[in-house]
Design a binder for these strands. Structure first.
Length: 574
DNA sequence: GCCGTTTTCGGCCCGACTGTTTTCAGTCG
């Protein structure tokens, strides 16, 4: 069983216990355990295999959860989870996804009406069966019907870039309102999470009522979910939910910190404050005894009040950043300006849309020293992949182009590369003749995603063992919101990559961001280099590098951990 | 169920909004 599956089961146990009405603190332990496991950089399986003590010392995982983890690793299931599911139907967990329905109402609906699925809930609401239940009325019925429609319209989360464009739009709109002095995004957007459930925007304004009115009347708004003096929520036509908070200047830092989250980071921070005799809420930091306010206008003050330096938003996941901050050991995170070149770019020869000239001109505007041209190999027929003859011809063309660059006194150079498929049998899709002429061979999987864990891992490892690859492209194959990662043992892949000096790519396409944050951190811990590349198919994609850099920051990467922060000579020399 | 500068027992983050209520529970973030 993989970490994600174990995390999911703990989360389900928490939900089921909550519906049953279990001890709230025990519920919190399971929920917290689930979050902790999701954020682990090492697989529980490999920790367990290290020996009896391998699983000890994970914060939030005590004796009971540890025993259940071992049970799941050994037997592939959890008896406690199965028993809970015998008491309650599995479909009841889906009820919690309906906005406005929590564990108490789910329990009530099941107990009184036998409702055990979203479809049954919809039927009951439409049949006016709900308004007789205690705590539910006419309005609740309507809201539930609406919420179910919303749930179906947006199955899941929004990609970062979609939310980012909405955020930019709202920020510009709100800034124009008289009396508004500051507008900032918070939440998972500010933390550059790869996908998000909603958008949080904070403003400082003289007159909250004016701002709230304007907000709910924005042309993209479909429904106003709630509207108050300090907080309003709307649903956009695209289905994205946007929350707006209006604040005073003196509380802005505390609110920004609070609403940036993550929830886990904030809980840990508040816990720390409490131990120091302080209380943190969205209005500031207060002493427990006298209630005196000691911080709140800036985030720096809030962190300083609990003895910490400011922590970059991308790190705020309670994955060790508070402990690191305490010891003065926060990473010196990578910046976009550290990037010296792009190691994965396509031209018109395969499925890109620009020529070498156009790419060179665009890359020089970014201040890059180099770009690796990495068109597809022939296995990707749909992308017009290059066979040996075309590949050799392109290599000559790049040599000639570099000669011209040199003569005209330009420092910029192209690297001769290829995105070469790792075929199902682990062999590479270019001949040794082609591969030996390349500066930058980027291995990739583009087909056969449904292989077993063992087969896919073996396939990639065999590709790495050819010794011909420099970089492994989009290593897990995920497409956010579209396709799960294929099954692969990344621990084993990373170990092999390390052995052969292969860097792992962090693909900056906002739908990919592959490696993800957790694997980035793991790669760093193992001493691997990460290549942050755009996989550009057009010069417009080159700017996606910002997504890659921020994703890398979420993985704690520093300049030294990233291959393409090195200059041309050093990169070519590898 | 977890954890320890207060602790091996007794705590465990905190506030806004909604709907259904006559003072609050449930949900959400």
């Amino acid at each position: 069983m993989e970490n994600q599956e174990i995390a999911r089961i703990f989360s389900e146990i928490a939900d089921l216990l909550e519906i049953k009405g279990g001890d709230p603190f025990r519920i919190r332990s399971y929920r917290n355990g689930s979050v902790v496991i999701e954020g682990l950089t090492e697989s529980l399986k490999s920790l367990y295999e290290k020996g009896a003590k391998g699983l000890e010392g994970i914060p939030g995982i005590g004796l009971s959860l540890r025993e259940k983890i071992i049970e799941m690793l050994d037997a592939g299931k959890c008896k406690y989870h199965d028993e809970l599911l015998k008491e309650l139907p599995a479909g009841i967990l889906d009820l919690l996804k309906v906005s406005g329905v929590g564990p108490k109402k789910a329990a009530l609906l099941y107990k009184e009406l036998g409702v055990a699925s979203v479809n049954e809930l919809e039927k009951a609401a439409k049949g006016h069966k709900l308004h007789d239940l205690p705590g539910l009325g006419e309005k609740s019925e309507q809201n539930i019907i609406k919420a179910i429609a919303g749930l179906r319209a947006v199955s899941g989360r929004f990609n970062l870039h979609v939310a980012l464009s909405h955020a930019e739009d709202f920020k510009a709109y709100l800034k124009k309102i008289p009396g508004v002095s500051t507008v900032e995004s918070a939440g998972s957007l500010r933390r550059w999470k790869d996908s998000l459930g909603d958008l949080d925007i904070l403003v400082i304004a003289k007159d909250p009522v004016v701002v709230m009115d304007a907000f709910v009347n924005h042309p993209d708004v479909k429904d106003a979910i709630s509207k108050g003096e300090t907080k309003s929520s709307v649903t956009l036509k695209s289905g994205l939910q946007v929350d707006l908070r209006v604040l005073e200047k003196k509380t802005f830092g505390a609110a920004w910190q609070y609403f940036t989250g993550s929830k886990e980071h904030n809980i840990a921070l508040r816990d720390r404050a409490k131990r120091m005799g302080l209380k943190i809420n969205e209005y500031g930091v207060f002493t427990e005894k006298t209630g005196k306010r000691i911080a709140g206008e800036t985030e720096e003050d809030v962190y300083k009040s609990v003895g910490l330096p400011w922590i970059p938003p991308e790190l705020r996941e309670n994955r060790g950043e508070i402990e690191a901050a305490e010891k003065g050991g926060l990473p010196d995170l990578l910046e976009v300006s550290d990037i010296k070149g792009d190691l994965h770019v396509h031209t018109m020869e395969s499925d890109g849309s620009n020529t070498l000239e156009e790419i060179a001109a665009a890359a020089m505007k970014f201040g890059y020293q180099y770009v690796a041209i990495t068109d597809h190999s022939r296995a990707v027929g749909i992308a017009h992949g290059l066979d040996e003859a075309r590949a050799l011809k392109q290599i000559e063309a790049i040599d000639a182009f570099n000669e011209r660059l040199k003569k005209s006194g330009k420092k910029f150079r192209f690297l001769k590369g290829a995105e070469v498929d790792i075929r199902a049998d682990g062999t590479l899709d270019h001949s040794d003749r082609v591969l030996s002429k390349l500066d930058c061979a980027v291995g990739a999987i583009h087909s056969g995603f449904n292989m077993s864990l063992a087969d896919m891992t073996g396939r990639i490892i065999k590709g790495i063992q050819t010794g011909k690859l420099n970089i492994l492209a989009h290593p897990t194959g995920r497409l956010i919101g579209v396709r799960e990662a294929y099954q692969v043992d990344m621990e084993a892949v990373m170990d092999e990559a390390k052995k052969h000096g292969v860097a792992l790519e962090l693909n900056s396409y906002p739908e990919r961001l592959d490696l993800n944050d957790v694997y980035c951190k793991r790669a760093k811990e193992k001493g691997l280099l990460v290549a942050i590349s755009t996989d550009s198919h057009s010069i417009a994609h080159l700017s996606n590098i910002a997504y890659g850099v921020h994703a890398a920051r979420r993985g704690w990467l520093e300049k030294k951990d990233v291959l393409n922060t090195r200059g041309l000579k050093e990169v070519r020399g590898r």
